[in-house]
Amino acid sequence: MKKFVQVEDVGMRFDTKKGPFVALRDVDLAIEKGEFIALIGHSGCGKSTLLNLIAGLTVPTDGVLICDGREIAGPGPEREVVFQNHSLLPWLTCFENVYLAVERVFGAKEGKPKLKLRTQEALALVGLTHAEQKYPHEISGGMKQRVGIARALSMQPKVLLMDEPFGALDALTRARLQDELMKICDATGATVVMVTHDVDEAVLLSDRIVMMTNGPAATIGEILKVELPRPRNRLELAHDPRYIDYRAAVLSFLYEKQAHHEKQAA
């Protein structure tokens, strides 16, 4: 199958006051179209850095990143980011926040009624039709996160990059959003890279789990292929021996193989 996103020998060095700091080295990853990738690793290992590189928000100091056959030189509409802290504009309503994105991508070709319809559809997809006219400070954290997801989805990106999108949510909301996300991915066939701290989330959602070693100079330690049939159901999977094995594999990577570095990295 054709590789859609390619990360080739990428290294990232930050110039700090104390001299250069190597965050990432020799990162090699090829992502297929429609694949769901989870990035997991201890805090500070460089997951956000890698995601920002794919988003084009930062440029690598070594190596090259390619998306759809073209080098990633900056942010592009085909790669959309759901930020860790949702990053909604507080002076715009939920509707306007999404509309801003829709207008940017489709504004040149489509009229206002069509753009509004797209915005409404995106908000309906995450179940927020009733909150369209509310401002971000008037809705809950989970709702904000969903608006952020709606904004990214409304642009119909080929690649969806999510930095711990459900990190700050309670377990119930998180489970609901995970289910919604799986449905959306099935429906749209989007390629997803998702940073997470949550082992269950990684196994439940992804096709491959990319496990990163501890920083500094982090790289990809192992890649685990999750071959569970879709659609996946969290209740059924809870007792599935394969699911339990995958889970154990990730846990062992995090807490046995990478555990002793933890203090050093912090």
Binding site: A55, L57, G74, P75, G76, P77, E80, V81, F83, N85, S87, L89, L100, A101, R104, M155
Partner: peptide
């Protein structure tokens, strides 16, 4: 910088 990153990711025009 979050807001400016939104601007960059959405690729907004200087006027927007």
């Amino acid at each position: 910088s979050d807001y400016m990153n939104v601007a960059r990711v959405l690729n907004l025009s200087e006027w927007k």
